[in-house]
């Protein structure tokens, strides 16, 4: 046995003989390569879908390209068809996936579908100049697949496509590098998207339609709403900016209460940190009006004091929630 602990615990009477035997049996069980194979599946899907995605564009003028297109179409149909045959029957609550291979075949089918549609638009302009339609249709299909097959990964892809359709991006990398937040249209789009996702999150749990999708919707919804509100706060001056800050605090309070009720440390932390950024913005913007070296001292002291205060607050929160901690 790997750890002498359990023998010790059994001898001390803290562990029943049955539990001890169960642990012993599990420890002497076979060597599982489950995670290794799963990583390999992920790598395989990543390489194949990336490879095909480039291959089809590089061969536009050759005869081979029709073959590649056909291959992608067959791959899509094959994967989705296979998954449809092997899936568990649909239900409104969580359906346990048959196995990891099923999940990744579904992902491969979905990705090759996206490549296929993207290529049709690029080469044949099937949607003409209606670019909205070119992102709308994949989005609808993605949402349908996510619900039909109960796949969280495809749901997040659907959410990113929803953002794409609205003209913005949501993945952290893109959000940080490519987004210009000093633009009213973008700020409002993000706000709308964030609120939409929050609504979807609450609808999922309230109506008991795939309530385990809550986290994915809520995760993106919370981040986008807060980022949009902060961007709006820093975009405007004086009167309007206070309005946005007030709105930020109201949203933070509502989300905070819900996160506290469900014991979710992750969302509590997000509420606390995003409101802290907003309030610190207010403090710095106010103090900087002084145009004096004293302002620097005050700002430094503000950050030291508020930081210590917030640590104590988090520490308290940790204590009061420890009994039922979740994500």
């Amino acid at each position: 046995m790997r750890h002498p602990y359990f023998e010790q615990l059994r001898n001390e009477g803290l562990l029943s003989q049955e539990s001890f035997d169960r642990i012993k049996q599990q420890e002497s069980g076979p060597f599982s390569v489950h995670w290794e194979l799963k990583t390999l599946l992920y790598a395989g899907v990543l390489m194949l879908s990336t490879g095909l995605g480039i291959l089809v564009y590089k061969n536009i003028d050759s005869i081979g390209h029709q073959v590649i297109l056909l291959f992608i179409a067959l791959l899509t149909a094959g994967c989705l068809g296979w998954c449809d045959r092997h899936k568990a029957p649909f239900q409104y609550e969580k359906v346990v996936s048959p196995n990891a291979f099923f999940d990744y075949m579904l992902l491969l089918g979905t990705l090759s579908f996206l490549t296929f549609v993207g290529y049709l638009q690029f080469q044949y302009e099937v949607f003409g100049n209606r670019y909205g339609l070119a992102t709308f249709i994949p989005m609808v299909v993605l949402f349908f697949l996510a619900y039909y097959f109960d796949h969280l990964g495809i749901l997040t892809l659907a959410i990113t496509n929803l953002a794409l359709w609205m003209g913005v991006t949501v993945t952290p990398k893109e959000l940080l590098s490519n987004t210009d937040f000093d633009n009213e249209t973008i700020i409002y789009t993000y706000l709308l998207l964030g609120l939409l996702l929050l609504a979807a999150a609450y609808a999922s749990t309230r109506l008991h339609i795939k309530s385990h999708f809550f986290f994915s919707y809520h995760h993106y919804g919370v981040h986008l709403t807060f980022i949009a509100l902060l961007a709006a706060y820093f975009h405007y001056d004086f009167g309007a900016s206070f309005l946005w800050l007030a709105l930020l605090l109201v949203v933070a309070w509502l989300l905070y209460r819900r996160a506290y009720r469900t014991g979710s440390f992750y969302f509590l932390l997000l509420c606390v940190l995003y409101s802290y950024i907003g309030l610190s913005g207010l403090a710095v913007r106010t103090l900087i009006q002084m145009e004096d070296l004293a302002a620097a001292y005050l700002i430094f002291i503000y950050f030291i004091g508020s930081g210590i205060g917030l640590i104590l607050f988090l520490s308290d929160l940790n204590k009061s929630l420890k009994r039922h901690d979740h994500l």
């Binding site: 480039i54 564009y57 050759s62 290529y119 749901l155």
Partner: peptide, 27 residues
């Protein structure tokens, strides 16, 4: 699922041709 969103969200976008020539139909 978050990893999937991060790594696959570019799928389906056209690839800009960088002029590299593909070496035939040996697929």
């Amino acid at each position: 699922s978050l990893l999937i969103a991060e790594t696959f969200s570019e799928t389906g976008k056209p690839v800009v041709d960088d002029g590299a020539v593909f070496g035939g139909g040996e697929f």
